[in-house]
Amino acid sequence: MLTGLLIPSLGFPTLILGLLVYIRRGVVRLERRGLHAQGKVLGVRYPRSNKRTVDYTFRPPEGPELQGSFQEWPPPASEQTPGSPVDVLYLADAPHHHMAVGKGLSRRFFLIAATCLVLFASCATQSVLEEYFARQGQDPARARTTPEPP
């Protein structure tokens, strides 16, 4: 029972944190080693009223035209229209790894999310362990480890 409760309380936050670390490493790699290219906006979509998705395209000097998109939440006051410029970072050895400048997972958001995940995992683990040991103490069959004298 203990293992069944500990796996989700530790496993879920660990998986999410691992995904965030992977994404953040990619963003840092692009910010440090990425080459700049000028792209253009293909279109703007509004799937929800408080968020917009901007589709863009760019052509690295050493390859074919590539497309990408980024989300803005909340959308800034300035409106982007098809054909407007967008700055793009891409890796020279892997141009399919690209992002619009300033649109990746920020360090601040990563630290806030990581802190929340660690706190959640700690509180959940503590709660599971307290419940487990409280039940152990209330179970009379487990409380008696030595036989009673006659």
Rank of each mutant, 00 (worst) to 15 (best):
F58G: 00
R135N: 13
S78Q: 13
P74A: 10
S122V: 14
F109P: 03
A143V: 05
M1S: 12
H36N: 11
Q67K: 03
L20H: 01
V86I: 14
E79V: 06
L15P: 08
A141W: 14
S106W: 08
R24T: 00
S49N: 14
L35K: 12
L20D: 02
A121P: 07
P150Y: 07
A100C: 10
G83C: 06
S69R: 03
S78E: 13
F109N: 12
L66E: 07
C116N: 10
L19P: 09
L91I: 08
Y90R: 02
P13I: 11
P75R: 02
V86K: 01
S69G: 09
P47M: 01
V128L: 03
L89N: 01
R108T: 15
Q138L: 13
G68W: 04
P150G: 10
I7L: 15
S84T: 00
F109V: 05
E65P: 01
G83F: 02
L119A: 13
Q80M: 06
H36D: 12
P140N: 13
K51E: 13
Y90H: 05
L5S: 02
H98P: 04
P150A: 13
L91F: 11
L42G: 03
V101W: 00
V28R: 03
W73D: 14
Q138W: 08
L17P: 03
Y46E: 13
E62K: 09
D93R: 09
A100Q: 02
R142L: 11
A124I: 07
G43F: 13
Q80C: 03
A114L: 06
L42F: 01
A121I: 11
R107M: 14
A141C: 10
E65V: 03
T14V: 15
L105C: 01
L15C: 14
L10E: 12
G26A: 06
V86G: 00
V118M: 04
N50R: 10
A94Q: 11
D55K: 15
P85E: 04
V128M: 06
Q126A: 11
L2G: 11
A100Y: 00
P140H: 07
G102K: 12
H98Y: 03
T57Y: 05
P47R: 02
P149R: 02
C116L: 15
A113K: 04
S127F: 10
P150T: 09
F133M: 10
P60V: 09
S9C: 15
L5F: 05
K103V: 07
G102S: 14
L19A: 14
R107N: 06
P140I: 00
S127C: 08
G63T: 06
H97T: 05
I7W: 15
L19Y: 05
A94Y: 09
D93W: 14
G83L: 01
P140T: 11
P47F: 10
P85Y: 04
T3E: 07
I23G: 06
T57F: 05
T57N: 04
